[in-house]
Structures are given as C-alpha cells and as structure tokens.
Design a protein around this nucleic acid. Structure first.
Length: 588
RNA sequence: GCCCUCGUAGUUCAAUGGAUAGAAUGCGAGCUUGCGGAGCUUGUGAUGCAGGUUCGAUUCCUGCCGGGGGCACCA
C-alpha cells in the first residue's frame, strides 16, 4: 500500500522495513513470516502513521509483550527519533507512530507540484468514455461515463501518464438501418435540420412503436443497415448527415461540461477492418461458421456464453467492431493500459471481447479493463429506455442546476456584477451535477432524483467551491490590495513556530499532507470518489480551522504559518477539483 | 437457470481485513467581538438473514432473501 511518492509514503516504507528487521531479530523469523502492513489515517484527531504488525501464523496478531520489546528497541533507532514525535501501543496489533509536524511543514511546497508524484511517467493510458449513440439525445445515463471517464483521464495525467482520451461514438449498427428506414417512410428534411436529435429520436421511437404491429419492419431496418455496410450511396449520405447533425448538438453539451477528447472516432472508423478480423478469427479457428452463415466464437472454456461476430446476412456486430478497435489501437496507439468507462450492463460483452482478444493475441503487453458503473434508474427505480422515449435529457438537468444556482447567487451575493453572477451560476450548477456522480462509489445504481441532483448544500461541489472562495478572500485581505494573489509570496517559516500552533493548525497541516495519497488511491481503485472524499474532508477541516483560528489577527509567526496553510489548502482544493473536472471561481 | 452488481441511520451516500462504523440531509439545541452564515458547534439515529475463514469481517468465502442489469444475429 505504501508507495514512496511523498513524505508519508517514504516514511511508511522505511518504517515497515525497520519493524520487520527488529521483529526478525528477536523472534528468529524469516522475512516471509513477518507481515507488516501500514496504513495512514487521521485517527482521534491525531495524524499518525499506523503500523499493524502481523507475525505469521505463529501467534496471529503481535502479542503485547512482543510489541513492547519491539517498541523499546525502536525508541533507540535514529531513524525513529529523527522522524517521529510519539510512539505508542494502541490496542491489539497496533503501534502508532506520530510524524513530526515539521517534516510535513517542509514538504508542503511540494504537494501541489505534480512532478513529485509521477508514478505513471512514460506510460500510455487510453481512456474511452462518454461514447454516446448518434441520433439519440445524451441523457442522464451518459453523464456517468462522461464525468467519471474525464476524471480518471485527469488522474492518470496528473500522475505523469500520457493519456489519450477517446470518444467511441455509437455510429454504426442495425439501429441506423432502422433510422434510415424510418426516415424513408416518415422523415422530413426540414424537420430534422431544425431539431436534429429530437426529430431523429421521434423517428426511432415511432419505428419501434409501429414495429409492434408490423414485425416485418424489423427486417426492413436490418436490410437498410446491410445496404449501408455495403456502401449504398443514398444510405451512406443519410448516415453521414445524421452523424454531422448529432455531433453539432453533442459539442454544445461537451463545451458546457468542459469535456475534451483527443479523438472522436466512432465504431464506423473500424468498418474497413471488420472483414479482416473475422477472416483472421476464422483462419485461426478461434471462430467458426454456422450452417446459416453466421460466425461465432465459442467461449465455453472461459465459462462465457458464445459471442457472435458476424450475422447470417453477413453484417457485422458490436463485438466485431470492438475487436477491430482493440487490434487497431494496440498497434497504432501502443498503450500500456486501456480503460473502458462503460455501464455495468455491458459486463458480459466486455468479458467476451477481452477473452477473444486474449485468444487472438490482439492486445499483447496491454491491460484491458472495463470500468463499470451502476445505472441511472428512473424515479420509479426502473431502467430508462430510449426506445420507449423514457429519458431524462442531460441538457435539461444542466439547465435546471444552473437556474437554481443563479437564484442562490442572486440572493447571497447581491453586489456581484451580473456577468460574474452568470459565471458563478454556471460553475456552481455544472459542478454540483458532476460532483454528485464523482463523490460516490461508481458501482451502485443511482435512482434519479431532482432534489438530490440539484443539492447545493452539505457534501457538494458548491461547499468545496465556497471553501476555496473563503480562503482566497483571506489571502486577498492579507496582501492588502497589493499585486495579484498569484504574485503573493509567503515568507519562510521556521519549525519553531510549530510550538505555538494549536491542534486545529496541526490538523490542517496533516489533512493537507494527505493530498498525494488521495490521488494515488483514486488511480489504484479507478475511483474518483476517493479524491472527492478527500477534498471534502479537507474542506471540512478548513471550515473548522478558520472558524477557530484567527489568521490575519494572529501574532506574526502564527500568521505566517496560517497563511501558508490557507494558501496551500486553497491550491490543493483548486487543483483537486480541476482533476475532477470541476471549476472554481474567486468570488461567489 | 447461469453471470455481473448492489443491500449500512427516516432518506442519499462513506469506510486499503483493524481502533469508538464516518458524512450529508431531516428533526432538536446553540454560534454578535475575528478574515464571507452557501459556514461552524452539538444532540438524534444504521451494517438484510444464516454459516465459514481470521486474533479481528461492513469488507473475503458459501448459502438464502431482496433491488437493478445482462445471457448470439441491438448497442
């Protein structure tokens, strides 16, 4: 668990070795029989590095007497004396080591410097996220992939990786045959041009409604897709147009959400490679051809159901395109890790695709990972289905959130210029929506709820943004109108000032110091909520801190210390929120 | 039937196998000096059931119950 990315990590690793050594010496155990695990946490208001000693199966947890023996020896160690202010046995199996605050103080300036923690330097990471279907509105279900994916991309980038952000559009497949068929039957060029996605969705929904009475319609849709895949001019032109119009609408949303991609390539990009993939799988007997002409990969030996890679009419499938994309990306983009940020409902699909890719060796030296997340369910707790037109549109949710934020700004900060108010409403509204998703474990299903989605109190983005604003306000006052905040340089502070520090100062110092660890853990678990949770705790300590500790009116030594804490906390909050894709403002 | 996933205060969510299971919200009680009350302090209240592994289980394993999703010509 411990990695040497920051002062805490370095101390933990050394401590681990130190204790293992002493334990071995006294109890003649081999290194394998000594297991030392390290955890770092803020416990009982006191920041300590906690070491749980577990010595093989011999005694189970370390007995008290053994712990005391080890403790006595450790107390004479120069390393311990230099770095820790307090050591004590704290319950069965636990020895608490309290790190000297001055060590944390000296490492403060390094915290916001990402060069200090580039564990992923030289690695290439592909993050595929958002990936909406063209011709359909982006609904509330797309928000999770978009926001979680963007945050993960930022997290890996912050750790030094070269990140490639991919938007793999759903722009190919039978659904477009259906849309083309529907357009040919009932479509109007002017209507589609006026409200592209809205109109295309209407056509798609109508197609499925009519299909209930006329099952033949389904075949018609499949036929149109087959023609599209064979290069039919009319169909291709229609498809291109649908795609253009859709992207135009998506861009507005992405801009508002502050989401960027390095490549927007869609499934159709791999169209020319599909036949090659199928032929390759057939040739190497990974896939077999059925009597009806369909081609399938049997995965029973991997305890998976078979995966179809070509339909009996010769058309391709989702899985075929996925395999082609893996093959292409592995050889052209050469990533070390590829993350698919896609809903849990596609778990089987990815297991099948990954298993097949492994057999065909399409992704050597490349780790493929499905970052799955729970669905956003309707207020009735049931799945939201596009086909039935039962959706909550993303742009409506955003508009609502911004509106609500605006009402609050108008009330809370009357003096702010109108332009600034609009900006605050935008940043707060969008931030609240994003944070709502990023602050919770991605695995659970979310039941959509307007009130919760639009909540601006408590554990929410506005709370963090507000904390940042308060800190900046203090810094502005501290520099007394001189220059910009950016140029404000804090004087050096010596360790001696810590003698005057209050518990609240030390808690702040310790909270701030945990920042690198939060980013690391978020990457390890592919869970942005771990970073969000940390930032919330930091904001919490901060609000408590300036409630009880005067900054500007403190004596000069304490004032310097506290200004340093305020400045660093503000910087960490800003940077941390930026990694999550949430903006801050200077006043709100 | 098989597979994935979830089950924690009234509600919405946390908790690398570790210490007294944390927050938010709701409801109750407080906070004029000092930098912004979108805040702070404080009370209230929870691990679906039954086994197993372990010194120790919300966490890992097995079974059951319950919610959601998926299981070849949709994506």
């Amino acid at each position: 668990m411990a990695s040497e990315v920051d002062i805490l990590g370095m101390l933990s690793v050394k401590l681990q070795n130190e204790i293992a050594e002493v334990a071995q010496k006294h109890y003649q155990l081999t290194p394998k029989e000594v297991e030392v695990s390290v955890s770092r946490e803020l416990a009982h208001g006191d920041y300590t590095t906690n070491v749980a000693l577990k010595v093989a199966s011999k005694w189970g947890v370390l007995p008290r007497q053994a712990a005391e023996t080890i403790l006595e020896e450790l107390k004479t160690s120069r390393f311990i004396i230099r770095n820790f202010s307090k050591i004590e046995i704290a319950g069965p199996g636990f020895i608490n080591f309290t790190i000297k605050p001055e060590l944390l103080l000296t490492s403060l300036p390094l915290l916001t410097n990402r060069k200090e923690r580039e564990l992923w330097r030289g690695q290439r990471v592909i993050v595929e996220y958002s990936s909406p279907n063209i011709a359909k509105p982006m609904h509330i279900g797309h928000i999770r992939s978009t926001i979680i994916g963007a945050a993960l991309a930022n997290i890996y980038e912050n750790l030094g990786a070269k990140v490639i952000r991919l938007n793999h559009l759903g722009d190919w497949g039978t659904q477009f045959g259906k849309l083309i068929a529907a357009y040919k039957l009932w479509g109007s060029r002017t209507a589609v041009h006026k409200h592209p996605i809205e109109e295309m969705l209407k056509l798609y929904v109508k197609f499925h409604e009519v299909m209930k009475d006329k099952p033949d319609l389904e075949k018609q849709g499949q036929e149109e897709f087959r023609k599209l895949e064979e290069g039919d001019r009319t169909n291709k032109a229609l498809w291109n147009w649908f795609k253009r119009e859709s992207l135009r609408e998506f861009d507005i949303l992405y801009k508002r959400l502050g989401i960027k991609f390095d490549r927007i390539t869609g499934e159709s990009f791999y169209e020319s490679m599909l036949k090659g993939v199928v032929a390759d799988l057939l040739k190497r007997k990974i896939a077999i051809k059925n009597a009806d002409g369909s081609i399938v990969v049997h995965l029973e030996s991997d305890s998976l159901s078979p995966m179809l890679v070509q339909k009996s009419d010769g058309a391709s499938l989702y899985a075929t395109r996925e395999l082609a994309s893996i093959r292409y990306r592995a050889s052209h983009l050469k990533p070390n890790l590829m993350l698919y940020v896609v809903a849990n409902e596609q778990a089987l699909h990815f297991e099948q695709v990954f298993a097949t890719a492994a057999r065909a060796n399409y992704a050597p030296h490349l780790k493929l990972e499905h970052i799955k997340f729970g669905l956003v369910l309707g207020e009735d707790g049931q799945k939201l289905a596009t086909r039935e037109g039962k959706i909550i549109k993303l742009d409506e949710v955003l508009a609502q959130a911004i509106l609500l934020a605006r009402q609050i700004v108008d009330k809370k900060n009357v003096k702010l210029p109108t332009k600034a108010k609009a900006r605050v409403a935008e940043v707060v509204g969008v931030g609240a929506i994003k944070y709502n998703d990023l602050s919770q474990n991605r695995h659970t299903d979310i039941t959509f709820n307007w009130d919760k989605m639009l909540s601006l109190d408590g554990n929410s983005a506005p709370y963090l943004q507000y904390t940042y604003v308060r800190l900046k306000s203090i810094l502005r006052k501290a520099q007394n109108g001189k220059k910009s905040v950016k140029k404000f340089k804090l004087p050096k502070i010596g360790a001696a000032v810590l003698e005057q520090a209050t518990p609240s100062d030390i808690t702040m110092l310790r909270m701030i110091s945990r920042y690198p660890e939060a980013i690391l853990r978020a990457a390890e678990e592919n869970g942005p909520h771990l970073l969000a949770g940390y930032l919330y705790e930091l904001a919490n300590s901060t609000n408590n801190f300036y409630q009880v500790s005067p900054v500007l009116n403190a004596n000069p030594h304490l004032k310097n210390l506290r200004l340093t804490l305020v400045n660093t906390a503000a910087e960490v909050l800003k940077q941390g929120l930026e990694i999550l894709g949430i903006e801050v403002v200077e006043q709100m």
